[in-house]
């Protein structure tokens, strides 16, 4: 079989092909492979939640579309911008770490954490608006029921459940990145790259949560 990755670093292989028992069939370390497997399972968790949300929405008599341009859509768009920018700074951190420049890598990770923290804070404020309107996990505000009669109370459950789990992921990502940045001398460049994988995954999930939760529920003018 022809060698696939001419660009991959040359590792000593036992057999000629992957199926003959190559020493590193994926050409990545075990930690990185583990993170990829975790990302697979976690994406199934979010996939199940989003599919359950869509299922509940379609099979309901009415579903509220409560998000006005300001504050909800503006806030969530800025949050998306924050997450995308944090992904970019994380890429810079990984590339600095690859160049063995740990000081710059640490600075870029702090920039990533700044954007991530901005995301969490903005999201908290946005939650505060909705809770202030009277939205609860299984209860809709009175005014919403007047606009959308018979609207499913599951709205709050799906909204808080999905965005809450995502926010929890962002928060744990912040802790993870903080540990990597603080003790960066003990970690090598692959560890930084693995934390980057997790961070990009959190970004990727938001790319599905944002349109499905927010953009499909924009308040009709």
């Amino acid at each position: 079989m022809v060698e696939v990755g001419a660009h991959a670093t040359a590792e000593p292989l036992v057999g000629a092909s992957d199926w003959d028992g190559g020493a590193l069939p994926y050409r990545v370390g075990h930690k990185k492979l583990g993170m990829w497997l975790f990302i697979m399972s976690d994406s199934l968790t979010f996939g199940a939640l989003l599919i359950a949300y869509s299922y509940a929405r379609i099979s309901s008599v009415a579903w509220p579309r409560p998000f006005p341009f300001f504050p909800s859509i503006v806030f969530s768009s800025v949050m998306t911008l924050c997450l995308l920018s944090s992904s970019l700074t994380m890429v810079m951190a990984v590339s600095a770490a690859k160049k063995r420049d740990k000081k710059r890598a640490r600075k870029w990770i702090f920039a990533t954490m700044f954007f991530g923290a901005a995301f969490v804070i903005l999201h908290m404020i946005e939650w505060g608006h909705l809770i202030g309107d009277g939205l609860m996990a299984f209860e809709l505000p009175e005014e919403w029921l007047k606009i959308w009669p018979g609207a499913s109370p599951l709205f709050g459950a799906t909204f808080f459940g999905i965005t809450g789990l995502h926010m929890f992921h962002v928060f744990s990502g912040l802790c993870y990145l903080g540990i990597i940045a603080l003790f960066i001398k003990r970690f090598d460049d692959e560890d930084v790259e693995i934390s980057g994988l997790y961070w990009h995954f959190v970004d990727l999930v938001w790319m599905f949560v944002f349109p499905l939760i927010y953009l499909l529920s924009i308040k009709p003018s």
């Binding site: 696939v4 990755g5 660009h7 991959a8 069939p25 994926y26 050409r27 990545v28 992904s87 994380m90 890429v91 790259e193 980057g196 994988l197 990009h200 995954f201 970004d203 990727l204």
Partner: peptide
């Protein structure tokens, strides 16, 4: 970003 394009197939 996740570098998958530059990993092994």
């Amino acid at each position: 970003f996740m570098h998958l394009r530059f990993e092994r197939m």
